[in-house]
Design a binder for these strands. Structure first.
Lengths: 124, 124
DNA sequence: TGAATATATGAGCAAGTATTCATATATAGT
DNA sequence: ACTATATATGAATACTTGCTCATATATTCA
């Protein structure tokens, strides 16, 4: 075999046609790929994970509470919450001067739990 | 109320004691937090997500196959695989000159599926 | 209206990261 | 032994990103 009518992005020639075709046809649409990776990227920061975990535990917290509980500056907290809000991971409710945040997606807690299983088993 | 015997990392004073205590006592241990966020961070890159998706679909692929299928240079592919391998998301099997990679964790596909649900619903 | 409080946000900086380039290692074939 | 092939890896670079600082907006209270 060793065809190389593929774009030769690699110099090797032992391409397994059908496996590659399998992989190619299973490719996620770009939009879905990007929204997926963006979701994971948001969860991939310790500060944001702590925020999500705190909201999951406490139900609803205002920015001030979150800052105090997680030892993060108000500005940093607002910036992070802004990202989480934009991705619809949290929702905000304004009450007087305070703004209360809560998780806006029931899947997220499930994601954390499932991910925790991997993290737990993988460690030696 | 409005106690501020907390470390005043924020200048506000409407801290809700019990909610904050709830959040604080639910804090994840640092090691677990970091391994969790590292897992998500790895999944939070489009290239790595494509690799994982390809392996999930094709079962086992050598570096050359992956490079060809995903249009990524051999070097970039090796670097990414190295990270995935270090985190035990993939395992490698050497066969002659080729090295075949496959997913090393049954949870990962589940994670992708669950995350996809969020990504699907969140879009307007 | 004026002062204080709670949150949001733009700019800038320091740290992290994905890719490329060059090169090293390992295996197979001649 | 020599060449070609497949993969791995260190260094450099361009790009991203999380935080801080300064400031803006909004709400409450006097």
């Amino acid at each position: 075999m060793t065809k190389d009518n593929e774009q030769l992005v690699c110099s090797c020639s032992i391409v397994h046609e059908e496996a590659v075709q399998n992989a190619r046809s299973a490719e996620l649409p770009t939009a879905r790929l990007l929204s997926l990776s963006e979701l994971f990227k948001l969860l991939g920061d310790p500060s944001r994970l702590r925020i999500i975990n705190a909201l999951s535990a406490a139900g609803e917290l205002c920015v001030c509470d979150l800052s105090a509980a997680l030892d993060l500056s108000q500005s940093a907290m607002s910036h992070q919450l802004s990202q989480l809000r934009r991705a619809r991971l949290v929702r905000s409710r304004k009450d007087g001067k305070a703004v209360f945040y809560a998780l806006d997606d029931q899947h997220i807690s499930g994601l954390l739990a499932l991910a925790a299983e991997h993290a737990a088993e993988g460690r030696e």
